[in-house]
């Protein structure tokens, strides 16, 4: 509890001590954290592999962008709209996905992510999606005359939604739904025998997971102020997978570690070469699968457990 409060306090101080550009980067990290949390519910807790969450990220981003650009909807109202659209899209995609297990689901979602940019470019949709050019958005100003610049305001806006989504996820995961998800992942036949409606829980998980990712997409579109088909290629989905694996599967805090990783490591690596971030992502992926399958969150948990045990031992000794 104290740790959470301290992290929150630090997060609130952040925009006042770093530059605007850094604030923008942290905003994106928060956006990724929401998306990773969504993917982690599906893959980490429910055991359904998705290589296509970039598609839901894109749907969320486009929902927000089209609403703002075409219909003049205020930016904050696009978030719930994106959530609803992605919840439905995810639920609908989850229905056929029910019949697919493991590898095949990965295949189907991979196909979705690869073909989505082509769909977004489709010329009959161009009047809404803007075709290849995409849509340019305006950055919102701080409301109520708050003494914040747009970057700072957007950071706080995103932070508030992130906190909300994390609390929601925490509640879902420790409740009936969360236990059902884990039960299905570990032993789906036993889970069914216990009276869990497997099909419903799996599709709902897919829907909720897509909803998280869609909200992240909408926030990302508002922060970057631009959406275009080619920025939502398969590598967005792969990046989310990287974040989940490196942050830690089946862990809420893992989403934050993973988000910081995928946001800031490429920045550092970019200095070496344009291709370096992805090479590093790939090598880290391999390394984590081989030696640290529980990700950073797992390593932190282990370290904390070891330290507290040591402290207890020392307290007991004399």
């Amino acid at each position: 509890m104290i740790v959470v409060a301290l992290v929150l306090l630090a997060a609130c101080m952040l925009p006042f001590v770093v530059s605007n550009y850094r604030t923008f980067q942290f905003t994106l990290a928060l956006v990724y954290a929401i998306a990773l949390l969504g993917l982690n519910m599906l893959t980490g807790y429910n055991g359904q592999i998705s290589l296509g969450h970039g598609a839901f990220y894109a749907i969320g981003a486009y929902t927000a962008a089209i609403l703002m650009d075409q219909y003049g909807v205020p930016y904050w109202a696009t978030i719930p709209a994106a959530a609803v659209v992605c919840l439905i899209a995810g639920f609908l995609f989850g229905l056929p996905a029910l019949r697919l297990e493991g590898l095949y689901l990965a295949l189907a979602t991979f196909a979705l992510a690869v073909s989505l940019p082509a769909l977004l470019k489709y010329h009959h949709l161009e009047q809404w999606t803007g075709g290849v050019q995409g849509i340019v958005l305006l950055k919102p100003d701080a409301p109520f005359g708050l003494p914040l610049n747009p970057d700072q305001w957007l950071y706080f806006f995103t932070l508030a939604i992130t906190v909300l989504m994390f609390v929601l996820a925490w509640n879902i995961l420790r409740g009936r739904m969360g236990h059902a998800m884990v039960a299905i992942r570990d032993q789906h036949i036993a889970a069914e025998a216990m009276g869990i409606h497997t099909a419903m829980v799996k599709s709902m998980t897919f829907g909720i997971s897509a909803m998280y990712t869609g909200i992240a997409g909408a926030l990302g579109a508002i922060a970057i102020q631009f959406v275009a088909p080619d920025s939502f290629n398969i590598f967005v989905s792969i990046m989310l997978l990287v974040g989940v694996v490196i942050g830690g599967l089946a862990s809420i805090s893992g989403a934050i570690y993973g988000a910081l990783f995928i946001q800031f490591v490429p920045n550092i690596a970019d200095a070496i070469s344009k291709a370096a971030p992805w090479a590093i992502f790939g090598i880290f992926l391999l390394g984590f699968v081989y030696v640290m399958p529980m990700g950073i969150a797992g390593a932190v948990r282990m370290a904390v457990a070891r330290l507290t045990r040591k402290a207890q031992n020392q307290a007991a000794k004399p």
Binding site: L51, F235, L241, V245, W278, F281, G282, L285, L286, V289
Partner: peptide, 9 residues
């Protein structure tokens, strides 16, 4: 994940 890592690398 290993296949994806390979793809990316």
């Amino acid at each position: 994940v290993v296949f994806i890592a390979l793809l990316v690398i």
